[in-house]
C-alpha cells in the first residue's frame, strides 16, 4: 500500500555532491479537519524520515501536520564510496515504510 518513490543517481564521481529525492504516498491527515457532522478527523501523519548510507544515518527529518500530503523531501549528500541508501518513514498508527537505492562511486 505504501508506495515510495526514490531518486538517487546510479553513478557518481567520488566527492561529488548528489541530490536525493524521495516521495512517499500518504494522506498526512492533519487532525485539525472536521467531517460534515462536526467530528474531528483523527491525525494520521508521517512523523519522521531517516536516510542511512551503509548503515550510518546521514539525514533525518521530523515532520508535522504542516507537511503536505504525499511528503516530498529533497536533500544532498557527498558521494564518498559505493553503497546502499536505506530510507525509512515512520508515522502514526504504526506506519512504517522502507526503500533502498544503490550508488556506484567511481
Amino acid at each position: 500500500m505504501a508506495a515510495a518513490l526514490v531518486n538517487v543517481p546510479a553513478k557518481a564521481k567520488r566527492g561529488a555532491v548528489i541530490e536525493i529525492k524521495t516521495l512517499m504516498s500518504h494522506v498526512m491527515e492533519t487532525g485539525y479537519r472536521h467531517t460534515a457532522a462536526g467530528e474531528v478527523v483523527p491525525r494520521d501523519i508521517i512523523t519522521s524520515f531517516i536516510c542511512r548510507f551503509n548503515g550510518t544515518e546521514i539525514f533525518r527529518a521530523d515532520l508535522f501536520p504542516a507537511i503536505a500530503a504525499n511528503p516530498f523531501l529533497s536533500f544532498f549528500t557527498t558521494a564518498s564510496e559505493s553503497g546502499r541508501f536505506e530510507f525509512e518513514w515512520i508515522g502514526d498508527n504504526g506506519f512504517v515504510a522502507n526503500a533502498t537505492a544503490s550508488i556506484t562511486v567511481e
Binding site: I18, T30, I58, A61, A66, I67, A68, P71, F75, F76
Partner: peptide
Amino acid sequence: ASFHLSPAAGRAQVATRIR
C-alpha cells in the same frame, strides 16, 4: 519540520512541500 544534517551532506539544502 526539522531537518537534521550531517557533515557528509555536502550542501545544507532541503526541499519539501508544506501546508
